[in-house]
Design a protein around this nucleic acid. Structure first.
Lengths: 339, 339
DNA sequence: CTGAAAGCGCTTACAG
DNA sequence: CTGAAAGCGCTTACAG
């Protein structure tokens, strides 16, 4: 079933059919009618490959995320996909599992599929992959990769504000001994969050004690193990902030297993505000990451780039603290962390 | 950058380049070498649209699910995508949000994109959409849609065993008054699960009391509301089974809010065993749905169909009970639900 | 073992 | 307002 048969049935040329199909102006209403009827009668669906081959655009976007099992990403995917769908654009998506080697392969696949544009919404990014995309002449947008923001548009998400709010909250409750569950330091976003934590801490004249910092893999299990370590510290922190909610949830599990009551004996704050954060017990105080906004920005950014506009990531987004039930005043009088 | 330039650089015809690229046998090693070098030098990437146009296959599969925010589906997507990726197949995916109208549009998009095959892994399906796919000559596979299994391959997942195990477990703990949180009865999977619950109950000579059955929207919020209703029943059930874990989690929240302690004063069992089930407190006893197995079956099914084989969904999969901490003996002596 | 050439199904300048 | 025809970049019978 091709455009020729439609043309024949409607007694017009394929050029005219194409014009009608694409809604070009300047076709007689009667002709439009004839063609539309023929299309309907034959149940004709245009071949997108032929179109793409001719036009050079696939109306296909690529979306790469870190981890589908972290609820942060399905929401981002959902938002991105909805916008694309509204514009008649389909999305192929892959995830890297926080693995840069996989990123490289993902990018490669997208290029081979000749997508029109790629959104790389991962925690970390690596220059080779970006160069590859650049060489292929495909617009790309990143999420909060300040390091590459000069060369590639990147939606900027600032972490300091959120951490400052979290810290202010903890301090106002009376905490002084504050621990941190970091993410793998080869991930840009994990590094950024750790830096933001440190900055916020120093601003209040608090020192960062290395035994109060543990590292996890961004997943629940990593958070659990990290918290076990923090609980062994002596003295141990009265409050802990985790780099993301997945790890905060794991931390909560570990505290529970160790019979440390949250928030009575330990306050806990996460980051992201994924749905699970409000479902665990106690519900998690967390720093809300505006991921739908990020997705929308990313999508619009790519659209603009395709129109030939010069784009950047736009104004910086600021996550804010959401207070729930995992934070409370410290049980005993807090010791001062600064010697 | 096209195959001609590669051909020119390698001093061969485009036919030969194509043969090398596709790994056809019977090309002289030296020639293969020349071509490969030219490909590498020019950083050549074949145009998949041209290939698809010529060959008539896109190496693109469509995957439709119900809800990305139910962790059940990201895992299924992940498994499906991994298999596809290993075969050099890309996946475009959409979700219906449990809405049949959206299913229709999703299917339409997939057809327009001329995917090679479609996996419709939703809770419910509707004949019009299936007919559309059928007319387009595209292989399709469903998830547990017995009603359509005669016409379209459907991966069969049986619910009765799981519910029987759940019920046996509750009965052995001493429960007789068992409530149920159903899903919307226009969803096939929700109907199936409710039927399975009823069947299991009758088998034990227990009656189904209508005030012990509430309906929710498959999401956390729906489970919460449904549980509120069940808690108002008098007498109220001592144990509740929910159609899926998302609703079970909501039910847990509602119980907690009403100061009904789980499992001390109320036992609760979910269905699916999504990651969150083991992360809430108490961790949920639930019936584990083998979704990765479903995804693998679905993928293989589509592959076989494309080879022209006659396919069916294969042997029935049986979800089994996983016992955690949300079930315990009833607090008081259980009353008998049968008058 | 390799090449010349047709053709997949569209779109789009060009001509009228 | 509409049509004839070229061409997008591949693959693949066919011929040698």
């Amino acid at each position: 079933m091709d455009i020729q048969q439609v043309a024949k049935r409607a007694n017009v040329s394929t050029a005219t059919v194409s014009r009608v199909l694409n809604g070009f102006p300047g076709v007689r209403p009667k002709t439009v009618d004839k063609v539309q009827r023929a299309v309907a009668d034959l149940n004709y669906v245009p071949n997108p490959n032929a179109r793409s081959l001719r036009v050079g655009s696939t109306r296909l976007f690529g979306l790469i995320v870190s981890d589908v099992n972290n609820q942060f990403f399905p929401e981002l995917i959902d938002a991105f996909e909805a916008l694309a769908s509204a514009e008649g654009i389909d999305v192929i998506f892959t995830h890297t599992n926080y693995d840069l080697k996989r990123l490289h392969r993902c990018v490669r696949r997208m290029i081979e599929r000749s997508v029109d544009a790629i959104a790389i919404m991962t925690s970390e990014v690596e220059e080779d992959s970006l160069k590859q995309v650049h060489k292929a002449g495909i617009p790309v947008v990143l999420m909060n990769q300040r390091r590459y923001a000069a060369k590639y548009p990147s939606i900027p998400v600032e972490y300091t504000t959120g951490f400052r709010e979290a810290l202010d909250h903890l301090l106002s409750l009376g905490h002084r001994d504050i621990g941190f569950i970091a993410g793998p330091q080869n991930l840009n976003s994990a590094r950024g969050r750790k830096d933001a934590f440190r900055t916020a801490l120093r601003k209040h004249g608090l020192h960062v004690r290395s035994e109060w910092i543990a590292e996890g893999d961004m997943r629940v299990e990593g958070g659990r193990i990290a918290m076990q370590k923090l609980l062994e510290a002596n003295p141990r922190p009265t409050a802990v902030i985790a780099t993301n909610d997945m790890m905060a949830v794991g931390a909560l599990q570990a505290a529970h297993a160790a019979r440390v009551s949250v928030p009575k004996n330990l306050s806990l704050i996460g980051f992201d505000d994924i749905p699970i954060a409000s479902l665990v017990r106690p519900s998690l105080s967390t720093i809300r990451h505006p991921r739908r906004e990020v997705a929308a920005r990313a999508f619009n950014c790519l659209q603009s780039a395709l129109k030939g506009e010069i784009v950047n990531g736009g104004p910086t987004l600021h996550p804010h603290l959401v207070i729930r039930n995992s934070t409370a005043p410290p049980a005993r009088k807090s010791r001062n962390a600064c010697k």
